[in-house]
Structures are given as C-alpha cells and as structure tokens.
Amino acid sequence: MAKLAFLGLGVMGAPMAGHLKTAGHAVTVFNRTRAKAEAWAARHGGALADTPREAAADADLVMACVGNDDDLRSVCLGPDGAFAGMKPGAVFVDHTTVSAAVTRELAQAARAAGLGYVDAPVSGGQAGAENGQLSVMCGGAQEDFDRAAPVIDAYARICRRMGDVGAGQITKMCNQIAIAGLVQALSESLAFAKKSGLEVGQVVEVISQGAAGSWQMVNRHKTMDEGRFDHGFAVDWMRKDLAICLAAADDVGASLPVTALVDQFYKDVQRMGGGRWDTSSLIARLG
C-alpha cells in the first residue's frame, strides 16, 4: 500500500480518491474549496491538507484531477505547490484533461526537481469514476508508469501507457474527437426518427444491434429523447476539451472539420443556457 495525495475533489476526483482509500492506501486530500475536502475526509476517514505542498509531503505518488491548464499549474508550481513538497523520486500523476503543451512544461519542471511525471487523463465520466471503471490513457517514462499503474487500478477498467509524456493527453483528444462526431450523429438520428413519427426506443432497439450501435446510443437515447441532460460531463468542459483538440490539430497539421463544426453546435447549446448540461444535449438544438 502506498502513501498518496489527491488534489481536486470534483465529480471525478472525489470518487477516485475514495477508491484509493478503499483499496487500503493512505490518502491525504486537498481541494481549493476546503468544505469539499472536509466532507470527503469525514466520509472516507482520510486526512486533508491546507495546500498542495502539505498534501504532497512524503507521498509516494501525488494524483491530481482539476479543471484546466491554469488550475493544474496552480496546484503544481509555486511555494505552496505540490512539486515544492514532494520528496525526490516521487511521481506526479495528472488525471486532468489539459493541453499537451502544459503537460510537457510541467513534466520538465518535475524532472528538474527530481520527480517523475505521468499524464493520465481519464474517460468514462462521473459514473465511471463512481464505479471504478475508468479508461486511463497514460504518457510518461516506463518506470514512472510502472509505479503508478498498480495504484491507478483502484479506479480503472483499463490503464495503458501510450508513449512518452504528452501521449496520454493526445489519446484523450482522440477520445473527445470521436465522441463529438458520434453524439452529433446520434442526435440527428433520434431527432429525425421522432419527427418522422417513429418511437425512438423501438428504433434504437433495432439499429443498436447493427453497425450503428454505440455506447452513447444504448446509454443515452432515452434521456436524450426525454430532454434530460444531467449525466455529469458538462458542455462547458467539452468545449474546453475541443479547443485543446483543435489547437493540437493545428500544431501537427491535422484536419478536424467535423470536430470544429460540433464545437460550434455546443456553443449554440451554451447560448440556450445549457453550459452545465451534459454532452448528449446536442439534440436540444435540433428542436
């Protein structure tokens, strides 16, 4: 069992940290809003700290799941950041979806401080975090991954090293690109079925058994048909992720025309007041 720190106790981080504690690890948590850390500690019996540096002190691994590039920098760097408190040889594991650029920047800072670094964004949403069934895509040195993977297994359905630092984030971008186009196509299919007078559930029962079937179709068609969009991963966060994808595509000369279009459709959803709706809400703009 390892001595761990977990930074960020949102809808993903809180259950992930809980799985680590249940697995028998010693876990100290930090959250910018202290009340969330207090509630987590009361529920799980772990310790809490006032700063990332205090949480990271003497930890074997420090895990983070925060909001964006700037949030990640704030918990890593500076006199109260995790890097300042981590012991030499400890490994920082970042579960946040951020740019590959900030990942490489922070990995370089970690190496300069004698620390390991693994970028390990996750897919599976709030339900995946709560059920310990996340897909974890990692980038980093093999030896750092080998130390982190047995700990990550507490909340992972699959955990794979995709390459050097940054490869995990690039893989997560592939995930978000695929989801964006798929959810738009599913939205159009369901909206077309409904306006044509068909019963959506019956349509899905048939077409989900063929080449059109997908996880999104099976798990989201009913709530999409009912206009319920409360499954956790918000449109605001999806637009953040798609902006990262589009910027990275420019860097490597890749063309993402469907992704760029769907990003604008999510912008329409934001204008409808749906910034906190989940990503299946694309159907709402189709009327």
Results as ranks from 00 to 15, higher is better:
Arg147Phe: 07
Ala149Leu: 07
Ala149Arg: 12
Ala149Gly: 06
Pro150Tyr: 08
Val151Ala: 00
Ala156Trp: 01
Arg157Tyr: 09
Arg160Lys: 13
Arg161Asn: 01
Met162Tyr: 04
Gly163Met: 04
Gly163Ile: 04
Ala167Tyr: 01
Gly168Ile: 02
Thr171Leu: 08
Thr171Ser: 15
Lys172Pro: 04
Gln176Cys: 10
Gln176Trp: 08
Ala178Pro: 10
Ile179Phe: 10
Ile179Glu: 01
Ala180His: 03
Ala180Gly: 10
Leu182Met: 13
Val183Cys: 02
Val183Gln: 01
Gln184Arg: 05
Ala185Phe: 05
Leu186Pro: 04
Ser187Ala: 15
Glu188Ala: 10
Ser189Tyr: 04
Leu190Asn: 01
Ala191Thr: 07
Ala191Leu: 07
Lys194Leu: 07
Lys194Glu: 14
Gly197Trp: 13
Glu199Val: 12
Glu199Gln: 14
Glu199Tyr: 07
Glu199Trp: 06
Glu199Asp: 12
Gly201Ile: 14
Val203Gln: 02
Val204Cys: 06
Val204Ser: 04
Glu205Arg: 14
Val206Glu: 10
Val206Ser: 13
Ser208Gln: 15
Ala212Ile: 14
Ala212Arg: 07
Gly213His: 06
Gly213Ser: 10
Ser214His: 02
Trp215Ser: 05
Gln216Tyr: 09
Gln216Asp: 08
Gln216Ile: 11
Met217Ser: 02
Met217Leu: 15
Val218Thr: 13
Asn219Ser: 05
Asn219Val: 03
Asn219Pro: 01
Arg220Ala: 03
His221Ala: 11
His221Phe: 11
Met224Arg: 05
Glu226Gly: 07
Gly227Ile: 10
Gly227Ser: 08
Gly227Leu: 07
Arg228Gln: 11
Phe229Cys: 00
Phe229Leu: 04
Asp230Arg: 06
His231Lys: 14
Gly232Asn: 06
Asp236Leu: 06
Met238Lys: 00
Met238Ile: 12
Met238Pro: 00
Leu242Arg: 00
Leu242Ala: 05
Ile244Asn: 03
Cys245Ile: 05
Cys245Lys: 05
Leu246Thr: 07
Leu246Ser: 10
Ala249Arg: 03
Ala249Trp: 06
Ala249Leu: 06
Asp250Glu: 13
Asp251Arg: 15
Asp251Lys: 13
Val252Glu: 14
Gly253Ile: 15
